Simulated scan of single mutants.
Amino acid sequence: MPTSTRAAVLTEHGAPLHLTELPLPSDLEPGAALVRVSCATLCGTDVEIWSGRMSFPGMLPMVLGHEMVGEVVAVGTGTRDALGRDIAVGARIGWSESTCGECYGCVVLRQPVACAKRGYGFLQRADVHPYATAGLCEYVYVVPRAAKLLLPDDLPDTWTAMAGCAAKTVLRAFDKVGGVRAGSRVAVQGSGALGLFATAVARLSGAGTVITVGAPPSRLDLAGDFGADATVDIAEGTTVDQVLDLTDGRGADLVMDFAGAPTVGAEAVAMAAQGGRVVIVGTTGPGSNPLPLGTVMGKELTVQGSLNGDIADYHHAIEFFQSFADRMPWDRLFGTPVGLSAAHDRIEAMHRLDEVKAVIDPRLP
């Protein structure tokens, strides 16, 4: 069993990642696993943390990456996946955040996303035991309470990695807001990985018209490949007017925020139809964003928040990719795999909007 691992560590916001060796635990706790990472797909959250837009005191140094899969090289006693299946050495697994199973959110609400001690591997400091728990490592220590899943052989690493955050987040949002009514008008705010995936989900769910709002033009062109009937470029500055024009003045029956820009809330309710639904997913952080409550009341809108996703959503995301494997060009969401030494370049590319989802294979040079 390896005693250390190569890792790309964030030591300063906006600075290059530091390639170094991190120690690995010598003994595996019951329920834990040691995994050699085969694929980590970077998420918008990784870019926000790297840039410093999402930050809090004492978080650095850290290893980024929370969408990953890999091969199990060692297990602790009684290590099983979320469905109770034994995890053996050599198994291919994905995993997500840990939950305590004891707090009000876990026990009373029965909502893992409400866990008071919810723990993401990428929030573990890289200078504190167990050191290596996030995706930009060659080997990762998967803690006992992390939500683990044995993965099917028929799905690529990139898809199953994305299922661990981006895909499950989108699918949960659709579930929370009640899904898509057949033939309805759907407006998706945001043309990143979540927005593009949501565009595809809306199309596959039977929407009559799907409108993707975002930038740059290359992303909007890609949205067409994922089922958008029309796109709106935010650079043109007439976002709401364009959505209203595309919906014969009525607005969208379902508006989904995957962008998180300061103006998104006001624009979402403005472009929503009478009696429409708005789901907020992309807005993060403590900042205050205005929401015109008079419009919410006057249009009798339903406004729903949706936070990431849990192990059930993760499982649904795997099933979704299996069911619709041939229906969308999923591989176009992903960049060319690179090793840890090029991870910083790929984060910068995502920050420039030159790449939708960077792919890191720590086994590469």
Rank of each mutant, 00 (worst) to 15 (best):
Y139V: 00
V89G: 14
S98Q: 06
V107C: 12
E67H: 03
Q124Y: 05
Y131S: 07
A114D: 14
M68I: 04
E102C: 09
D86K: 15
G70Q: 03
K117R: 14
R118N: 14
A88K: 13
I93C: 05
G70V: 06
Y120C: 11
V140W: 08
T79S: 13
S96Q: 14
G78F: 09
F122P: 05
A114E: 11
G84V: 11
G135R: 03
A116L: 11
F122E: 09
C103K: 08
V140I: 14
G65F: 03
D127T: 06
G70D: 02
C137Y: 09
Y104N: 04
D86P: 14
G94M: 02
V128M: 08
Y104W: 15
G78Q: 06
A116C: 06
V128H: 11
V63T: 06
Y104M: 01
M62Q: 13
R118W: 04
A116M: 11
A134Y: 00
A134C: 11
A116T: 09
V128N: 08
V73D: 07
Y131Q: 05
F56V: 07
G121D: 00
A114L: 04
A114S: 12
K117V: 07
V73R: 03
G65D: 10
S96G: 15
A114F: 14
P130E: 05
P57Q: 07
G90R: 14
P57W: 01
H66M: 09
P130W: 01
R80V: 15
V108Y: 10
L60T: 05
G65Q: 02
G90A: 04
G65A: 06
S55Y: 08
E138D: 04
A126Q: 04
D127A: 08
V63Q: 12
L60D: 09
P57A: 08
L83R: 15
S98P: 02
Y120L: 15
I93T: 02
K117D: 11
G76Q: 01
A134E: 02
G119P: 04
V72T: 00
S96T: 15
Y104H: 08
V73W: 00
R110I: 10
V63C: 10
W95A: 09
A132T: 00
V89Q: 10
A82Y: 10
R85K: 15
G94H: 05
P57L: 00
T99C: 12
V108S: 14
G135H: 02
Y141I: 02
H129A: 12
A88E: 09
C115N: 00
W95V: 01
G78H: 03
A114K: 08
A82S: 15
P112R: 02
P61K: 04
V107W: 11
A126N: 05
T77I: 11
C115Q: 01
C137G: 00
P61S: 08
Y131P: 07
P61L: 00
K117S: 14
G65P: 06
A116E: 15
H129V: 11
F56C: 10
S55V: 13
A126M: 07
L64E: 10
A132W: 07
V75G: 12
T79Y: 01
F122S: 11
E97D: 10
L109V: 03
A114T: 04
E67M: 07
C137M: 06
Y131G: 08
G58N: 09
A91Q: 04
G65I: 00
D127K: 08
D127N: 12
G58D: 13
R80Y: 10
R80D: 13
G119D: 06
T77Q: 15
F56Y: 15
M68G: 12
T77W: 02
E71Y: 04
Q111H: 11
R118T: 13
A91N: 15
S98L: 07
G105S: 07
